[in-house]
Amino acid sequence: MKKKLLFLLFSNFIFAQKEQFIDLRQNIKDKKHFAKSLTLLDRREDKNIGIVSHRKEPFEVKFEKDDLEKLFSDWFVEDNKVQGNIQYYLVLENLKVNDIPTERSVMGHLELKISTFLKRNDHYYFLKKRTISKDYPQKDHAYITRAIAARISSELANIIKDSYTETGLNSPILETDLGNYEKIIPENLSVYSSETFTDGVYKDYKSFAEQKPDKEFAVKKNKDGVIRGVKRVDGYDNLGKDVYAIIDNGIAYKKTPVSIIEIEKDNDGIFIMASQEEIFPQYNSTPVIVGAGAAGVIGGLVAAVVIDIAAAKIRKKNEAYYRIGIDKLTGEYILPENFVKPR
């Protein structure tokens, strides 16, 4: 009798488990009406998201429906009554939440990895990728379960909306290769497969990865051959245009808010050696001109910014420098664990 009672109580606890739903109601409208459809490709081995606690009470985090492909398709159709002809795919690679014990209580943790592709002629073209690993301490969040669910929802909506304006890396893959896209696509990008770099000015990471410099711009130097910025080839120095990198005499440079830094290459990919002050000038009390690219895309190669490679080399004497990788698919910084990004 006691065993039956315990079983019933345990069963009631399971069925009474509280749930925190991930709300897919943020607007994902394609304002230019290029998108024809959005299809979810759920590539997770374990479909269970996990349990996270609010005030010691466990909540199972989950989507509102089990049929995720229909759930996401309906979400897209609801916001896109007028449709185009581009098929978009959202790949859900990892989504997990859990409790992490602390000295006094527990904090929530979120792991999320998603990517987007467009499909053309039975091939997939990479657009964007997001990877998140974040802790949610009790002291920072009034309701951890809601905060985590809201973050998942916003990240899904944001990557979808951001993908509408992406043209995609020109490295098509088959659907059977989606599980290994992070390895296959870079192998077909010129910046990784070629022995040398192509001189020129690159407006974004896509053009840099494919080694297709912007023909409207050229590297600007002084009479001593020192790089001073970029210039228009037609003679008009309208330099408000953001650029990602410049290559001169086969040497690639990345612009940070305070200097340009040589891009190096090894078996793991491309990287720069930089200090925290060069990437996030908030660490430095000296006033600096901050461009558009502390997070990756760099801007502000304007005439007012003096770029001196000789001075950049001397900088290594008095700073702590870190290997900062450059993501092979997005061009964003891969910061080392001890390199703290300011909040």
Results as ranks from 00 to 15, higher is better:
residue 234 D to H: 01
residue 237 D to C: 03
residue 231 K to W: 01
residue 238 N to D: 13
residue 240 G to Y: 09
residue 221 K to A: 03
residue 245 A to I: 07
residue 231 K to R: 14
residue 231 K to H: 10
residue 241 K to I: 11
residue 221 K to Q: 12
residue 232 R to T: 06
residue 233 V to C: 01
residue 241 K to V: 02
residue 234 D to R: 13
residue 245 A to M: 09
residue 222 N to D: 15
residue 243 V to P: 03
residue 238 N to I: 12
residue 230 V to Y: 00
residue 215 K to E: 08
residue 245 A to S: 08
residue 243 V to E: 05
residue 219 V to T: 04
residue 216 E to L: 12
residue 243 V to N: 10
residue 217 F to G: 02
residue 233 V to D: 00
residue 241 K to R: 14
residue 224 D to W: 15
residue 221 K to V: 11
residue 219 V to Y: 05
residue 214 D to I: 01
residue 226 V to H: 08
residue 220 K to M: 12
residue 233 V to T: 09
residue 226 V to T: 15
residue 231 K to D: 03
residue 226 V to Q: 11
residue 245 A to T: 09
residue 241 K to Y: 13
residue 215 K to H: 01
residue 217 F to M: 07
residue 230 V to W: 04
residue 242 D to W: 11
residue 241 K to H: 05
residue 229 G to L: 01
residue 236 Y to C: 01
residue 222 N to P: 10
residue 223 K to P: 04
residue 235 G to T: 12
residue 235 G to W: 08
residue 217 F to L: 15
residue 218 A to N: 08
residue 229 G to A: 07
residue 235 G to C: 08
residue 227 I to Y: 05
residue 224 D to M: 15
residue 220 K to F: 11
residue 214 D to L: 05
residue 222 N to V: 04
residue 232 R to H: 05
residue 221 K to C: 13
residue 239 L to H: 09
residue 237 D to I: 14
residue 216 E to C: 03
residue 240 G to F: 13
residue 223 K to R: 15
residue 216 E to V: 07
residue 237 D to P: 02
residue 233 V to Y: 03
residue 237 D to E: 12
residue 240 G to T: 13
residue 227 I to A: 09
residue 218 A to I: 09
residue 223 K to Y: 15
residue 239 L to T: 15
residue 239 L to E: 08
residue 235 G to S: 10
residue 223 K to V: 15
residue 221 K to P: 00
residue 221 K to H: 06
residue 231 K to Q: 05
residue 238 N to A: 14
residue 230 V to G: 07
residue 232 R to P: 07
residue 225 G to N: 03
residue 245 A to Q: 02
residue 220 K to L: 13
residue 226 V to R: 04
residue 245 A to G: 06
residue 231 K to A: 14
